[in-house]
Design a binder for these strands. Sequence first.
DNA 1: CTTAGGCTTGCCGCCATGGAAAATGACTTC
DNA 2: GAAGTCATTTTCCATGGCGGCAAGCCTAAG
Lengths: 101, 101
Amino acid sequence: MTEARFDETIHAPVRLRICGLLNKADRLDFAVLRDTLGISDATLSKHIKTLADSHYVTISKSSSAKRTDARRVTWLSLSPTGRSAFAAHVRALQDIADSRA
Amino acid sequence: MTEARFDETIHAPVRLRICGLLNKADRLDFAVLRDTLGISDATLSKHIKTLADSHYVTISKSSSAKRTDARRVTWLSLSPTGRSAFAAHVRALQDIADSRA
DNA sequence: CTTAGGCTTGCCGCCATGGAAAATGACTTC
DNA sequence: GAAGTCATTTTCCATGGCGGCAAGCCTAAG
C-alpha cells in the first residue's frame, strides 16, 4: 500500500479532476475530456503537458484509418506512476479530512 | 447529509489543512496552528482572514487572566458554516477520487 | 509613557491559470 | 505536391494567489 503523499501538481482543481477521470477510464479522448471539464483546448493542453512532464500522463495519437471521416484522436491515460501518485495524493487528502495530518 | 460541493477557498493546501485540524479540534491556538503548519505568522493570519471572510472560521481572543504569565491567546475554530462547507468539500473530493465527478 | 508580545497589513516579487489567437503537424484533397 | 483541414500546441497577456519581510497596531505590563 502506497504512502500518503500530498502532490501539489495533482492538487490543482482541474488536474485533480483529470486524474480522477483518467484513473477510472483506461484512457480518454482529448476532446471528450475537454468537454467534460468544460475548459478550453488551450487550458486542457497545458494541464496535460504539466502532468505529462511529471510522467503522470501518457499521450498517444491514433494515426487514424485511411478512410475519410475517421477522426484523428489523441488518447490520454494515467501512467502507472500517475496512478500511484494519484492514489498517494488521495490518501493524503483522506488524512487531512480525518485530521490525521 | 450535505451535498458535495467543491470549494476553491477551502481547497488551497494550507487552508485545507487548517480546516482539517480545526474540524477535529474544537478550537486551536493561533501559535499552535502556525507551528503545526510550519508557516509564518503573516501567512497564517492571511489564510485565517480568508476563511473568516467566508464565515468559515471564527476568532476569539482571550482577555487573559489578570496574573502575569497568562498568555493572551487567539482561539480559532470552525463555525457551523465552516464545518458544513468543509464536509461538502471533502465529499466533492471523494467523488473526484472515485471518479463520480 | 514606554515596552513587549502577538497578530495584522502593506509591499513586492514570483509563479499559476485561463483564454484568444497565432502557429504546428499530420493527414486529405484536388 | 501545393493548399486546405482539423486537432492540438504555443505564445501572449492579463489577472490573481501566495509567501515572507518589515512596519503597524493593539493590549497588557512596567
